[in-house]
Deep mutational scan, measured.
Amino acid sequence: RTAFSSEQLARLKREFNENRYLTERRRQQLSSELGLNEAQIKIWFQNKRA
């Protein structure tokens, strides 16, 4: 289980509010910017949509 920092969570929530689905390219960008792997971001979005 991933423990996200408050900064990472704030960024993910802001991104989710703008778009509930990420393109592969956007997921790669977020992964690089947040220091998370793409799978972690993908799962976070899946869980948030559920």
Rank of each mutant, 00 (worst) to 15 (best):
R1C: 15
R1P: 14
R1V: 13
R1A: 13
T2L: 13
T2Q: 12
T2E: 13
T2K: 10
A3L: 11
A3H: 13
A3N: 11
A3C: 15
A3T: 11
A3R: 13
A3M: 12
A3V: 12
A3Y: 14
F4Q: 02
F4D: 03
F4V: 06
F4S: 03
F4C: 05
S5Q: 04
S5W: 04
S5K: 04
S5I: 03
S5E: 04
S5L: 04
S5F: 03
S5A: 03
S6E: 14
S6M: 09
S6H: 11
S6G: 08
S6P: 15
S6R: 09
S6T: 11
S6N: 10
E7S: 07
E7D: 09
E7M: 06
E7F: 07
E7V: 07
E7I: 06
E7T: 08
E7K: 06
Q8G: 01
Q8Y: 01
Q8M: 05
Q8P: 01
Q8C: 05
Q8S: 03
Q8R: 01
Q8V: 09
L9A: 04
L9P: 00
L9M: 07
L9S: 04
L9G: 02
L9W: 05
A10W: 04
A10P: 00
A10F: 04
A10E: 14
R11S: 06
R11H: 05
R11G: 07
R11W: 04
R11Y: 06
R11D: 03
L12A: 00
L12M: 05
L12D: 00
L12Q: 00
L12E: 00
K13E: 15
K13P: 00
K13V: 15
K13W: 15
K13S: 13
K13N: 15
R14L: 10
R14A: 14
R14P: 01
R14Q: 14
E15A: 11
E15N: 01
E15Q: 03
E15H: 03
E15F: 04
E15P: 00
E15K: 02
E15S: 04
E15D: 02
E15C: 04
E15V: 05
E15T: 02
E15G: 02
E15R: 02
F16S: 02
F16Y: 10
F16T: 01
F16M: 02
F16H: 02
F16C: 03
N17T: 08
N17Y: 09
N17W: 08
N17F: 09
N17I: 09
N17C: 11
N17P: 01
N17G: 09
E18A: 08
E18I: 09
E18R: 09
E18W: 06
E18H: 08
E18D: 08
E18Q: 09
N19A: 04
N19H: 09
N19I: 03
N19S: 07
N19E: 04
N19V: 04
N19M: 04
R20H: 11
R20V: 06
R20A: 12
R20L: 03
R20W: 09
Y21M: 07
Y21P: 04
Y21N: 09
Y21R: 06
Y21F: 12
Y21I: 10
Y21K: 05
Y21S: 06
L22Q: 02
L22P: 15
L22D: 10
L22T: 03
L22N: 02
L22F: 03
T23G: 08
T23L: 02
T23D: 13
T23W: 04
T23M: 02
T23V: 03
E24I: 11
E24M: 09
E24R: 14
E24T: 13
R25E: 15
R25Y: 11
R25V: 13
R25K: 14
R25L: 12
R25F: 10
R26C: 05
R26Q: 11
R26G: 05
R26L: 07
R26T: 06
R27W: 10
R27M: 15
R27E: 07
R27H: 05
Q28R: 11
Q28E: 09
Q28S: 07
Q28C: 09
Q28N: 07
Q28A: 10
Q28L: 10
Q28K: 14
Q29L: 10
Q29E: 12
Q29R: 09
Q29I: 11
Q29V: 08
Q29M: 10
Q29H: 07
L30K: 00
L30F: 01
L30E: 00
L30I: 08
L30M: 04
L30D: 00
L30H: 01
S31M: 05
S31Y: 03
S31W: 02
S31T: 05
S31A: 14
S31L: 03
S31R: 03
S32M: 15
S32E: 14
S32N: 10
S32C: 09
S32P: 01
S32F: 13
S32W: 12
S32Q: 14
S32G: 07
E33I: 06
E33S: 04
E33H: 03
E33G: 02
E33D: 07
E33W: 03
E33N: 03
E33P: 00
L34C: 02
L34Q: 01
L34F: 03
L34P: 00
L34W: 02
L34H: 01
L34K: 01
L34V: 04
G35F: 04
G35V: 03
G35W: 02
G35P: 00
L36N: 00
L36S: 02
L36A: 04
L36F: 02
L36P: 00
L36T: 03
N37P: 15
N37E: 14
N37Y: 06
N37D: 15
N37H: 12
N37V: 06
E38P: 11
E38C: 06
E38Y: 04
E38M: 06
E38D: 06
E38S: 07
A39F: 12
A39D: 15
A39S: 11
A39Y: 13
A39V: 12
Q40H: 08
Q40E: 13
Q40P: 02
I41W: 02
K42R: 11
K42P: 01
K42T: 14
K42D: 15
K42V: 15
K42I: 14
K42H: 14
K42C: 15
I43M: 11
I43P: 00
I43W: 15
I43K: 11
I43H: 11
I43Y: 10
W44E: 01
W44F: 08
W44P: 01
W44M: 02
W44H: 02
W44K: 01
F45M: 02
F45Y: 05
F45P: 01
F45W: 15
F45E: 02
F45G: 00
F45D: 01
F45R: 00
Q46T: 08
Q46L: 08
Q46P: 03
N47Q: 13
N47W: 13
N47M: 13
N47G: 06
K48C: 12
K48Q: 15
K48H: 12
K48P: 04
K48Y: 14
K48G: 06
K48E: 15
K48L: 07
K48D: 03
K48S: 13
R49C: 10
R49K: 06
R49W: 11
R49M: 13
R49I: 12
R49F: 09
R49P: 03
A50F: 08
A50T: 08
A50S: 08
A50P: 04
A50W: 09
A50H: 10
A50E: 11
